[in-house]
Simulated assay, not measured.
Amino acid sequence: MVEGVTDNKRSSLTLDFERINNATLGFEKVFVVNLAERTDKRDGLSLTAALTDIKLDWTRAMRGSDVGDKALPLGVDRKEWRDGGIGSWRSQMNVIRSIVEDSIASALILEDDADWDVRLKEQLVRFAEGSRVDSIRPTMPHSPYGDGWDILWLGHCGDTFPERIPGHHIIDTDSARYKYYAVHNDETMPPPEHTMSWISGDLKRHPATRWVHFSGGPTCSAGYALSQAGARKVLLALSVGGTLVAQLDNAISDLCRHHTPWDAPEDIEGPPGYPGARMRCLSVTPALVSQHKPRGRRAADSDIEPIYNVDAVRDVGESPNLVWSARLNAQNLILGLPMQHQFVAHEEKGAMDYNLHIRNS
């Protein structure tokens, strides 16, 4: 287990990490997939990005009914797949294809209900320290997150350590087979009772700690980054030459879970259609990008999943695992008011003037 980096290495990386403070978070572009009729979602995310100095590239999502039968990959039966699932797959493939076509070195792909802590750029610097712990070089890599990665899972519903998945040894992180980077005393971590995670036992043993680790099997795709190499691998495996054996987020996760770079070739037994992708995938747990559930009609939440209670209303918006949710603090950011802690009233727990915090950080 890696506890951090030395002061000398940290100072040598300072210039590199400054690139994370740009409008695209150190990536070449930040894409968002959005259905044209969901103007409400575009309004919300556009405002959130503007308030936190992030530039978005919007791309139009497709409905499954707009995808021709001949364009469906092996494994997809239109009668068994939801229209939203097919549309989500093709929409993401369109973005990934554009990354390949335009030779984009790295890109972050967000869903249109994404949310993040107002301190996201600070969080990403700590993440970058972990993602580069094995690849610190005297010369500046192309990405502030290091070179050699295919996917960075920044937003997911849950992930676990590689030792916890079938075919790997289940051992404690204190004697882990794979290297982990621990971000201790993370002030942006939610209280333990409000932390949603698949590694809750590890979080109890290491309170207020966020982990950067090889991906074990993340679900959901609220926010993930692809390098150029990673985009090519995903486009090949999930469209050009593969078999789509699961919904998009699980299919990408399978590329990480079944073709890990640390396994010997003879150990690879992934699902059919994913021949030797050998993805290098890194996750941060708990995730830094969350799926926001807004105040209003619950039936408006998802464009993929079926809605069962169409009359239900959510009185207060929520974003799992985010302390200073950017969406929930939109009015405070506009008016220059202290940030509201999502889980504890700001009168009770150290609310802080965000502008002052940024100036002093």
Results as ranks from 00 to 15, higher is better:
D57M: 10
W198I: 02
R90N: 11
A49C: 06
L236W: 14
I165W: 04
T260K: 15
T139H: 11
P272Q: 09
E187C: 06
F31N: 00
E193T: 14
S135M: 08
S200A: 15
R314L: 04
E122R: 13
K293H: 05
H213E: 13
I96G: 05
Q92A: 14
G146D: 10
Y180F: 12
D263A: 14
H346S: 15
S103L: 04
L152P: 01
D147E: 14
E187R: 09
A237N: 09
P141A: 03
H357R: 12
I20R: 03
L244W: 11
G276P: 01
K41M: 06
K179G: 02
A277Y: 01
D134S: 12
G350T: 12
S131E: 03
L35H: 15
M352N: 00
T52P: 03
W81C: 12
M1V: 11
Q247V: 13
R60N: 10
R19E: 13
S65R: 15
T6W: 09
G276F: 14
A251K: 04
A49D: 08
G130E: 08
D254P: 00
S283H: 08
Q291G: 09
R205T: 12
I171S: 12
E111Y: 07
G44D: 11
R132F: 01
S215M: 05
V310K: 10
R327E: 11
S143I: 00
H142C: 01
Q342N: 12
Q92C: 13
L35P: 02
V67Y: 03
R82C: 00
L13Y: 00
A351E: 14
S91H: 04
H341K: 07
I171G: 12
S221H: 06
A264L: 14
T14Q: 13
D147L: 06
Q331K: 15
D53C: 04
D66A: 15
E101V: 12
G216S: 00
L238Y: 01
I151Y: 02
L337F: 03
L356A: 14
V33N: 07
G270A: 11
V32F: 10
Q228T: 12
S325R: 08
S200I: 15
A222W: 06
S65E: 11
L328N: 10
F17M: 15
K29W: 06
D16L: 15
L248Q: 04
K55Q: 11
Q291A: 10
N355E: 06
K9A: 13
D202W: 09
E122Q: 15
V245M: 07
R132N: 08
D254M: 08
D43A: 07
K204C: 01
D40R: 07
P265C: 06
L288I: 05
L15Q: 09
T39A: 12
E193S: 13
H292V: 02
I96S: 07
A114W: 00
I99H: 07
L110H: 03
L203V: 01
L110M: 11
L288D: 01
G217T: 01
E28M: 02
G85H: 14
S290V: 02
P286N: 10
E269N: 14
L35V: 08
N185E: 15
E318K: 05
D7C: 04
A251H: 07
L288T: 05
G167T: 03
G270K: 05
H156E: 02
D134I: 07
V323Q: 04
